[in-house]
Amino acid sequence: MPSPKRKYSAVERELIRTLTLACETAKSEIVGFQWLTHDVDFERFPQSLRVTWMFDSEASRARALASPDKARMLELTQAAFDEVGISVSSIATHVAFSVE
């Protein structure tokens, strides 16, 4: 039986592709946003999937979270998941916001 990582390697590649598009979109729209990353434990996929949006400062992060930018980041993350076929009950539980 293949390992979970091997089983999900195609999903991982597609997720990286769709999250890269989300990242590039957000860079042009959200002040202070720098990059994003994701982490997943394939033994607990998709529940363990987490996307972290990184900002250049705490002020930028706070400003984004207090504005429509937060909804936009959730929307971009959901669109990336949808494109890959990853179904989650609440996108907000799979997203974090941090500072470099």
Rank of each mutant, 00 (worst) to 15 (best):
I16T: 15
A80C: 06
S9A: 08
F33Y: 11
A66G: 15
V11R: 02
V99A: 01
A22C: 14
S60E: 00
T77N: 14
R44S: 05
S60D: 06
E29D: 05
M54P: 00
K27L: 14
M1E: 11
S3L: 09
K70N: 03
V51L: 00
F45C: 09
S67K: 13
G32T: 13
A10T: 01
M54W: 03
E58L: 14
V95D: 04
Q47T: 09
K27N: 07
T37N: 15
L49T: 00
R61W: 03
T18F: 10
L74Q: 07
Q47S: 11
A59P: 06
E75A: 10
L19W: 02
M54L: 08
F81E: 09
H94S: 05
P4M: 01
L15M: 12
S67A: 13
S87M: 05
R63Q: 07
A79C: 06
R13T: 13
K7F: 10
D82A: 13
A64G: 05
S89F: 04
E43N: 05
R44K: 11
A10C: 02
R50S: 12
E43D: 11
D39V: 14
S90F: 10
E12G: 08
L36N: 02
D69M: 05
T25C: 14
E43T: 00
S67T: 07
V51K: 01
S98C: 01
S60H: 11
T93N: 12
I91P: 07
V84S: 03
V51N: 00
W35I: 06
P2D: 09
Q78K: 15
T37H: 13
T37F: 07
F45M: 12
R44P: 00
P68N: 01
P68H: 01
R61S: 12
R61G: 08
A80E: 02
V40N: 11
E24N: 15
K70S: 13
V95F: 02
R61E: 04
E75D: 10
I30N: 02
E100H: 15
Q47Y: 00
S9E: 07
E14P: 04
L74K: 08
R61F: 00
V99S: 07
E29G: 02
H38R: 15
F45N: 11
D56E: 15
A59R: 15
K70L: 03
S87L: 09
S98G: 10
R13P: 04
R72E: 13
K27G: 10
A79M: 06
G32Q: 08
V40L: 04
E12S: 14
F33S: 14
H38Y: 15
D39F: 11
A96D: 14
S9P: 04
D82Q: 06
M73K: 05
F33V: 06
